[in-house]
Simulated assay, not measured.
Amino acid sequence: MTTTPRPRPDTPTLVEDLLLLLFQPASGTIAGENTLFYVLGGAVLADLALGDHLTVTARDRVSSVADHPPPDRLLRPAWDYLAEKPRGVQTALAAIGPALRDPALRRLITRGDIDQDSRKVLGLFRSTALREGRTERRARLLAEVRQVLVDGVRPTARVAALTVLVSASGTLPQFDREIPWTSPVITRAKELESGNWGADAASAAVTRTVTATVVNTAVVAITVLPRS
C-alpha cells in the first residue's frame, strides 16, 4: 500500500520558483498569464521527474513511479493523476495546470517571497496588490537563470528546467533589464528548449535525461498555444 509522506512546505517546489520568477515587481503582476497554467503544469512534471517520481513511457507519455509519491502536497495530485495510467504530456498539462496558481502564490506570500497589501479604493472597495518580498529569493533565482543564458554557465538539471520553462512561457523579453534580450541569449534559450542541456555532474544521468525529455515535450505543447 502506498503511504502518504509528510509534506515539506518550507522547501520551495519548482512551481513556486517559476511563479516567483514570472512575478514582475514593477507592476505587481504575473507575466505570461495567458499560458500560465500550462507552464506551471510543466514545472510540476519537471519537479516529479527531478525527484524520480515520474518516468517516460512509449510515445513520450508520462507515468508515475509506483509507490514513490512526492512528499509535497502541491505535487501529489499530479502524481495521483499520472498513477492511474500513462498520459500524453499535453493532456497532463491541461489536467494539472489550472489548479496550481493560487496555492503556489499563497505559499510565496506565506514564505515572504511576495508581499500582499490590502487597501481600500475610494474608501469603499477593498483591493489587494502584490509587491516583492523581503527574502531576495527572486533575485537569486534570476541570477541563476542569467548565468545560464548570458554567461554560459552549465546549469544543474533544476536550473535548466526553470530556464527552459521561463523561455517557453514567452516572457523572456520582459526580463530585458536583468537578462538582455540579445541574439546570443535567444540562441542559448532555444538550445535549451531543444534539449541541449549539457553534462551535469550534480544530477544522475537517468534523472537528467527523464527531466529533459519531460520538460522539452512540455515545451512543444506550450509553444504551440496562442499568446492572445
Rank of each mutant, 00 (worst) to 15 (best):
R138L: 13
R138K: 04
R138Y: 13
A139R: 15
A139P: 03
R140V: 13
L141K: 00
L141F: 09
L141G: 10
L141Q: 10
L142G: 04
L142P: 00
L142H: 07
L142K: 13
L142M: 09
A143Y: 06
A143V: 00
A143C: 03
A143L: 10
E144W: 06
E144S: 15
E144Y: 04
E144Q: 15
E144L: 14
E144N: 15
E144F: 09
V145W: 01
R146K: 13
R146E: 10
R146Q: 07
R146C: 09
Q147C: 11
V148Q: 04
V148F: 06
L149F: 05
L149R: 00
L149G: 02
V150Q: 11
V150H: 03
V150C: 12
D151C: 04
D151W: 05
D151T: 05
G152K: 04
V153T: 11
V153A: 12
V153R: 11
R154K: 11
R154H: 11
R154M: 08
R154L: 10
P155N: 00
P155T: 07
T156G: 07
T156N: 03
A157Q: 06
R158C: 06
V159L: 07
A160N: 03
A160M: 08
A161P: 01
A161S: 15
L162K: 01
T163W: 08
L165E: 00
L165C: 05
L165W: 00
L165H: 06
V166F: 03
V166T: 13
V166Y: 04
S167L: 11
S167Q: 11
S169L: 05
S169Q: 01
S169I: 07
G170Q: 13
T171K: 02
T171I: 11
T171P: 05
L172Q: 12
P173V: 13
Q174C: 06
Q174P: 00
Q174E: 14
Q174H: 12
F175M: 13
D176I: 03
D176K: 11
D176R: 03
D176N: 06
R177I: 15
R177C: 12
R177Y: 12
R177D: 15
R177T: 14
R177E: 14
E178N: 10
E178K: 07
E178W: 10
I179C: 14
I179Q: 02
I179Y: 06
P180R: 10
P180Y: 05
W181Q: 02
W181T: 08
T182K: 04
T182Y: 03
